[in-house]
Write a protein that binds this DNA or RNA. Structure first.
Lengths: 286, 286
DNA sequence: TGACTTGTCG
DNA sequence: CGACAAGTCA
């Protein structure tokens, strides 16, 4: 028996939005620590990994580990019917072959219940080594999204160079060459500021999302942690798909070592979305 | 060596937007006075002419005149990645075959550098005689755009009649006849004019949604300078494309003499965009 | 069906 | 000026 309730549907909606372009089906692996999902994209190039820790739910109950095979296409359709501040409860019996999903509106007495059919999915659970990366770049997630968008007009690949001075993103193609440079410590306004109030922090999920329209954007500085300079080339198409996760949080961190897959991480309260992507081996690949 | 820096990208963005529907490639002719661009549209019907005077740049440096062959398609893609208030610097070495374009964000240390490949373009530089026109009509550029839009619903050509009383725009087609009259001195709020004058036809389709902007539109009176009445017919398709320049400035002026190409001018600080279009010879042409 | 572009709102 | 939503194109 699994039963998990989250105060607001918005995080779940954003998580689904973040991965639905990459994944069509996936197993949700649940245990007492929370819910995890991991899957390669359809062309087996990128790995997506989602964690929703049990702390993010109240209550959370999972008597014994279970693996729930979900069609993200179906789940997307269902989750889109929820309001952002609806309460979401998901429930699964030990024996059933369907997943119960319930949305309760806060202001009215509207209750929507879905019973989503499940799938049998071969879970190719890949162990991901807990690598130490040579370079970790953290920046505003909006900035990351924009860099992907801007460079996409020039080419299909981006070379990321990280050094002490900063991080450079460069692309080239028919129309010429583009290079975008961020200096360490450089601030960048995000789209979503949320002000930390001192009083009400803890377990209460902050559903006050004041998306500070104009003016009061929080400045999110670029931070670089570097053991060794790296230079890696990636497919912009995938990096752009990763950027769909940007609404989840202010920051994204890119973890890189030469010739090792990139880890692109979006962390949020009580969970994260991580993407892994192998670098292009050489520039002639394109 | 050319180096020119403008404080804000917005003007450049608007200039490019104004001509990109008409022109795909053009030479940017640079000298110490500034940058000029002149080109016929692809079907060799309309002439576009852009001037960016050196005063609009700081600093501006152009050691010797040069002609830079630019693909507006590429330039459009690049310029779209700039924020409106980014600082723009364009640079070209005397010998290179590419144009350096740099956007610097004001708030952060984000720097985007592009190196755009150039083209060899046969510059058919047409001398434009500095004509004295018989009639010059100046009006709100938003009003101009709206007239083009409204009349396009009715027909493909517009006849413009200028007399002492005012200026009339008329079109006809399948669904009937439309005539729009502006009187001299009549004020018009930018964007939403409905000056109901006596000549108003009821056949005018009313699907105008007046998006009167922020309410505080400046009133821009219609001004007519007239030596002799004129009556000319133009393709609405082209006049509508000219209207893309409207964001550049509050006013547009239409310079006309019978049987001579129209000059449609959008002037702004330190520059202008001008369009020339030959009149249709007779109304049976359509 | 999804992604992108454009237009509107805050 | 940035974010959201709708419409269009692929």
């Amino acid at each position: 028996m699994l039963e998990a309730r989250m105060q607001s549907a918005s995080t779940l909606k954003k998580v689904i939005d973040a991965v639905r372009d990459l994944i069509t089906d996936a197993n949700f692996d649940c245990n007492e620590e929370g819910i995890r999902m991991q899957a390669m994209d359809n062309s087996h190039v990128a790995l997506s990994s989602v964690e929703l820790r049990s702390d993010g739910f109240a209550p959370y109950r999972c008597d014994r580990p279970m693996s729930i095979g979900v069609s993200l296409v179906s789940l997307t359709k269902i989750i889109k019917t929820a309001d952002n501040n609806d309460t979401v409860t998901i429930k699964k019996d030990d024996d059933g072959d369907s997943l119960g999903i319930m949305f309760e509106s806060s202001k009215s007495d509207r209750v929507a219940e879905y019973d989503m059919k499940l799938m049998d999915i071969d879970s190719e659970h890949l162990g991901i080594p807990d690598t130490q990366y040579d370079a970790v770049v953290s920046m505003a997630s909006g900035e990351y999204a924009r860099i992907c968008r801007d460079l996409s007009v020039v080419g299909e690949s981006v070379r990321i160079d990280v050094s002490k001075e900063g991080v450079g993103f460069s692309a080239d193609g028919e129309l010429g060459v583009a290079k975008l440079t961020l200096k360490q410590g450089a601030g960048s306004a995000t789209g979503a500021g949320d002000d930390d109030d001192d009083d009400d922090e803890d377990s209460k999920p902050n559903k006050k999302k004041r998306k500070a329209g104009s003016g009061e954007d929080k400045v999110v500085p670029v931070e670089i942690r570097l053991n060794q300079s790296v230079s890696l080339t990636f497919s912009l198409k995938y990096l752009t798909m990763f950027a769909k996760a940007a609404p989840l949080c202010d920051r994204v961190s890119l973890h890189m070592s030469n010739e090792v897959p990139l880890l692109c991480e979006f962390g949020f309260d009580d969970g994260h979305v991580r993407f892994y992507l192998a670098p292009k081996l050489s520039e002639d690949d394109e």
